[in-house]
Nucleic acid binder design. Structure first.
Lengths: 354, 354
DNA sequence: ATGCAAAATAAAAACGTTTTTATTATCGTT
DNA sequence: AACGATAATAAAAACGTTTTTATTTTGCAT
């Protein structure tokens, strides 16, 4: 008796333990625990009770081998600016938190794969599919023409992307309405009298970089103005890039009177650049930013932003992936969020000449 | 022939495929692939070649079931201030990146488990051990008396902690020398003439909160001064907390003339608070901060900091975990980093009365 | 009572490995 | 030539599930 207890404590109980305990066969136990209709209710009850009592937990490895499922959701996390310890990718914590919330009730766990670039991400996706390292994938940093999306759509492997590519493919995704956001920001500044507006933008191959340029251009077009394409800066979204772009643009012959910043990290850089040049936001220069992690409220002065808590996107990503892995039609799993404007600066008081 | 090829392409090759192909038994194949000395070199060569040719990849699930290993490193990621979308935990991206770099050559992958509080973390650790969800654990947010460390030390399960508890236990860890850092910051400000120095600190049960208080106190003690304990603010490390603390403290009858900020997030908050009150860093008030993610350089004005790139800590965490999982003595796996001072403000020009 | 369908359970096979045990081949020694 | 030791390989068992197939039990109509 004491022996049995001791050995039971040494190795965790298996289906076999339950079989010995209840007298049923392991087949019946397995079916009962999965609530199969072929086993009698009374037996189920007895088996559940016994399982509860000895604290039985299904062995994930045994299940995985038999079913081919891993109960893992892979997240491809891009880390671009590793080399210089540059402030970057900070919003990913929130994305992970959101995904985790969505997956909380389910049996799925999150595995994170750090990728350095798109090629790396492609290779990783390939490996995940081929080796069955996960049951689904979430990734971001979508290019206008993204090989990962082609790959995954073709393979039929469940995935959700944060962002959309420009090809007319059907796949689950979550995105921000970047075209609209850039349009709204530019329109607002134009209404305030600004004509020379700078756009701090990510690199061109990124799909949302192009979306933002589209919206930016549309705002000028609708106002009957020419788009100041010379004021569009493109680069990695580091703080350093924001700073250097701002300093650079402001020293041009026809400098901008306002800035639209793509994210909180570049915004900080732009503000730093303005500070270095002795310019003040709200009096010398206007700034509108996009914020994912609610940090703009704490800048000095606080900045007017289009705010979209990225954790909400993360949660949606997780939900969609669960549904996708359950076999749902990707057609249904698409959501595009519009950020909300939070006014903090009188940014529309009219253009101020350089 | 065509048939075989088609079926080979459908399901990935297994050891059995290799056995059929080479004529050896699956036992020999397995041993050969693991480079066992009992199999003849010629056979090994042949088997390796065949494996290469058909692109054989060992099935992780089969291996896992047989060996009990998961080839997963679990990372417990704390997300505290989810409810308000507060800027928090941003440095975790860098930690993950560092861990990932360390694990890059190995067969290990990272699984991230988001935890809400210490209790949650304890439960998660329990599950990981009991269900064998991973082969090792990394976690942070260590309390002065941390149940997770007791649990893991007792169980013998491989782990590395970011931070140390105050019990004299032997376990692998990576930490920052918080006592020294707080001491050095306070000493520097005292030398500059400051007497009323505020310390923006995390909550007391956290081990490094106490370390910082110790160092802070020691600096005053060595200078023959009394520690201004009324200027120690304790709270979550959100930006909001930094802002509210600063405003609060500065409105006291005997306000501080300088601030020591625990991390970049609270620093931003303190700066925001100062801005609201019309105070200027460097002229009205001095600020020294700790920075993990190299963001202080971009504040306006740039802030003097003790800087320790957290990615380096992450890398060390990963290395230590690998060694620990390989059976190495935890006695050897301990490293405490001292951040380096980066001077950006003339913060020692003497105290300025309120 | 008998037979038959349906219900419930049990047995066996399978997933892809690794490890233990068994068998066969090789070789030097007497 | 026979033997024993060693080297090399093969066979079988095991890890913990799920699923398919087989068997037993039950309930009901005849």
């Amino acid at each position: 008796m004491a022996e049995i207890e001791a050995s039971a404590r040494r190795t965790p109980p298996t289906i076999k333990t339950l079989a010995d305990l209840t007298g049923y066969s392991i087949a019946t136990i397995s079916k009962a625990l999965r609530d199969s209709p072929v086993v009698a209710q009374a037996t189920k009850d007895a088996i559940f009770k016994a399982a509860q009592e000895i604290g039985y937990q299904a062995n994930a490895r045994g299940m995985a081998l038999r079913t081919g499922k891993t109960y893992q959701a892979a997240v491809l996390m891009p880390v671009t600016a590793v080399r210089d310890y540059e402030w970057d990718g900070v919003e990913y914590t929130q994305i992970l938190s959101g995904i985790s919330q969505a997956l909380d009730g389910s049996d799925y766990r999150i595995s994170v794969h750090v990728i350095r670039d798109t090629e790396d991400g492609c290779e990783m996706a390939r490996r995940i599919i081929d080796q069955g390292l996960a049951d689904g994938i979430i990734f971001s940093g979508i290019l206008a023409d993204d090989p990962r999306i082609d790959l995954l759509v073709e393979s039929g492997f469940p995935f959700v992307s944060l962002g959309r590519c420009r090809k007319p493919l059907v796949y689950a995704h979550v995105d921000i309405d970047n075209e609209w956001a850039a349009f709204a920001a530019a329109q607002r500044l134009i209404a305030g009298g600004h004509r020379r507006i700078a756009l701090i933008n990510p690199q061109r191959p990124l799909s949302y970089a192009m979306d933002r340029i589209d919206g930016f251009t549309r705002a000028f077009g609708e106002a009957g103005l020419e788009t100041p394409t010379d004021l569009i800066a493109e680069g990695d979204l580091s703080t350093r890039f924001g700073r250097e772009s701002a300093i650079d643009l402001l020293q041009q012959p026809e400098p901008p009177t306002a800035f639209i910043c793509i994210n909180e990290s570049t915004t900080l850089g732009v503000l730093s650049g303005l500070g270095s040049l002795g310019r003040h936001v709200g009096t010398d220069i206007d700034v509108i930013a996009y914020d994912d992690i609610n940090v703009s409220a704490y800048f000095t002065p606080p900045i007017t932003t289009f705010y979209q808590p990225i954790e909400v996107l993360g949660r949606t990503l997780g939900q969609f992936l669960l549904q996708r892995m359950a076999g749902e039609d990707p057609q249904m799993l698409r959501q595009v969020f519009r950020p909300t404007l939070i006014e903090r600066q009188p940014d529309n008081l009219g253009a101020r000449p350089a």
